[in-house]
Computed example of a mutant assay.
Amino acid sequence: MAMNFENYVKDANTWSNELCTYLGIDDVNKANRIFRAVLHAIRDRIQPGEAIHLAAQLPIIWKGIYFDGYNMHEPVRIRHEKEWLDFIRSKDTFAEIADFPTLEHAHYAFQDVMSFLKDHLSEGQYQQIEHALHSEIMVAA
């Protein structure tokens, strides 16, 4: 089996460019930071098995980003929207103020990323993630 790194880069760039459309921004780097922050928040909020199933549907470069810094542990217990949005903001290392200056920005970013995931993951996988997040958190989406 050949490793076609150009295709891996192409797949990751396709997702990044499409994500810009969902987020309504032109800055691919910002879109990538936002996506990483939301993915890391979801990853740390759901059960490890669910986190692995989600990763299986990501392009290979995004899998690496998704698992960067991951330690399998019990999910973080977050049940309230404000706490969830603060948690997302905390995952955007060094750019929190630029990418999520307010909780409202984090709220809309989470909505947009969830819409993106809904359109790019299998229906079953998306529903598992949706179910794994507390209902009050999903109000934000």
Rank of each mutant, 00 (worst) to 15 (best):
M3K: 15
N4P: 01
F5R: 11
E6R: 13
Y8N: 15
Y8M: 15
V9T: 15
D11A: 14
A12F: 15
N13I: 03
N13W: 06
W15S: 00
W15P: 00
W15N: 00
N17L: 15
Y22R: 11
Y22E: 02
G24H: 15
G24S: 15
I25F: 01
I25L: 07
D26W: 01
D27G: 08
D27A: 14
V28Q: 14
N29A: 15
K30F: 02
N32H: 02
F35E: 01
F35G: 01
A37P: 02
V38C: 07
L39C: 06
H40E: 14
A41C: 08
I42K: 00
R43Y: 07
R43G: 04
D44F: 03
D44M: 09
R45D: 09
R45Y: 07
G49Q: 09
A51G: 10
H53A: 13
L54I: 13
A55H: 04
A55E: 07
A55P: 02
A56T: 09
Q57Y: 07
L58C: 10
L58P: 04
P59W: 02
W62R: 07
I65F: 12
F67N: 06
D68F: 10
G69I: 03
N71A: 07
N71V: 08
M72T: 13
E74C: 04
P75M: 08
R77M: 08
I78N: 01
R79M: 09
E81W: 01
E81I: 11
K82L: 07
K82P: 00
E83R: 06
W84F: 12
L85D: 00
L85S: 01
D86V: 09
D86C: 15
D86K: 14
F87E: 00
S90I: 01
S90F: 03
K91E: 01
K91C: 01
T93W: 06
F94A: 14
A95P: 01
E96W: 00
E96H: 02
A98L: 11
D99N: 11
D99Y: 03
D99R: 10
F100T: 03
P101T: 05
T102N: 04
L103N: 12
H105F: 05
H105A: 13
H105G: 00
H105Q: 06
A106Q: 03
A106V: 01
Y108K: 13
F110K: 03
Q111I: 10
Q111C: 12
V113F: 14
M114N: 04
S115K: 15
S115Y: 10
S115G: 14
S115N: 15
F116P: 03
F116C: 04
F116Q: 05
L117A: 05
L117W: 02
K118C: 08
K118S: 09
D119H: 05
L121N: 03
L121Q: 10
S122T: 13
G124Y: 12
Q127W: 06
Q127G: 02
Q127F: 12
Q127Y: 08
Q128H: 07
Q128E: 11
E130Y: 12
E130R: 15
H131I: 07
A132G: 10
L133N: 06
S135H: 14
S135N: 08
S135Y: 13
S135W: 13
V139K: 14
A140S: 14
A140P: 02
A141P: 02
A141E: 05
